[in-house]
């Protein structure tokens, strides 16, 4: 009798184990299916409308009615916005994070900075866009590349900072001790930490770039939209996410097709930068101690 219940018990545990494995595989399979359908749809629908002109020309006057031209304005605009945002964000994030691991290590201030970064990470980018727009209105300015960069900086800053933070956290304490034991100041320690975490920083930069180039909500109010290439920081500028969004919103199938092509271009850009980030993490850093 007793043996029997025990056998039942084992059978039940084995059954639960198999059930959970099935559920887990099912969940991953579902996600894989969704990803496959996403990539496939973007590829199939995008390739149709993709042309050399899409990549190399700015929109003609009747572009949004189905006329000629391309979305070079959006491609260049997006790259400019993302690059600018990464530059601004890293100017704050890199020294800020190094501070968190040297001078500020273990203080309450640093704990609050981390919390702030987590809050900013979760903040909808439309909120950043709306805030920057309000400031623009106060100052009597119009939408511009600069304003778009500022809004995207807010989007990217927490991503860059928290990712880099985790990278620096992975630096072995042995390195900190070995450096300090030579009589270094904390500034020199910060430099050494930066050196050791350089590949991780590069990966974080690419991740941030990927996010900056894909975010449409932050630039919606701030960067504006134009059919020309940006000439100065104070001109409005087009961006890929908005190019997709606006073209999909028109009633013309030909224009909608071009939205799919633009989505394909954006996807490829994101994949390429994601790949760079992966390579940076695994192939860079000749002197880094592993």
């Amino acid at each position: 009798m007793k043996r029997n219940t025990r056998r039942h018990h084992y059978a039940r545990r084995r059954y639960v184990e198999r059930l959970m494995i099935g559920l887990m595989r099912g969940a991953l399979g579902l996600a894989a299916l969704a990803l496959a359908s996403l990539l496939l749809v973007i590829l199939v629908r995008g390739v149709n409308a993709l042309s050399w002109a899409m990549l190399t020309e700015t929109p003609a006057a009747d572009f949004y009615l189905g006329g000629g031209g391309g979305i070079l304005n959006a491609i260049v605009g997006s790259l400019a916005l993302a690059l600018g945002a990464i530059l601004c964000a890293s100017l704050i994030a890199v020294p800020g994070v190094l501070y968190m691991h040297t001078y500020g290590k273990g203080t309450r201030h640093v704990a609050i900075v981390r919390l702030t970064l987590d809050v900013l990470w979760g903040m909808p980018s439309i909120v950043f866009g709306a805030t920057i727009l309000t400031v623009l209105l106060w100052l009597g300015l119009r939408t511009s590349l600069l304003a778009g960069i500022l809004a995207l900086t807010l989007v990217v800053l927490p991503i860059l900072a928290r990712t880099f933070d985790e990278v620096v956290r992975m630096v072995p304490t042995d390195l900190t001790q070995a450096t300090l034991a030579l009589g270094t100041t904390r500034l020199e320690l910060a430099r050494m930490l930066l050196r050791q975490s350089m590949p991780g920083l590069m990966a974080a930069l690419f991740l941030a770039f990927e996010r900056a180039i894909g975010d449409g909500a932050a630039v919606l109010f701030t960067a504006g939209y134009t059919n020309t290439l940006p000439r100065s920081l104070l001109d409005p500028v087009a961006s890929l996410p908005l190019a997709i969004f606006f073209q999909l919103g028109t009633p013309f199938p030909a224009v909608q097709d071009r939205a799919y092509a633009a989505a394909l271009i954006l996807t490829v850009l994101v994949l390429v930068f994601g790949m760079f980030g992966y390579l940076a993490l695994h192939k860079l850093g000749r002197h880094v101690i592993r």
């Binding site: 969704a34 990803l35 996010r211 894909g214 997709i244 969004f245």
Partner: peptide
């Protein structure tokens, strides 16, 4: 799989 999904821009999800 997760890395690719995480990197996709929202607007592509919208499409």
């Amino acid at each position: 799989l997760t890395d690719l999904l995480a990197g996709m821009p929202p607007v592509v999800y919208g499409v």
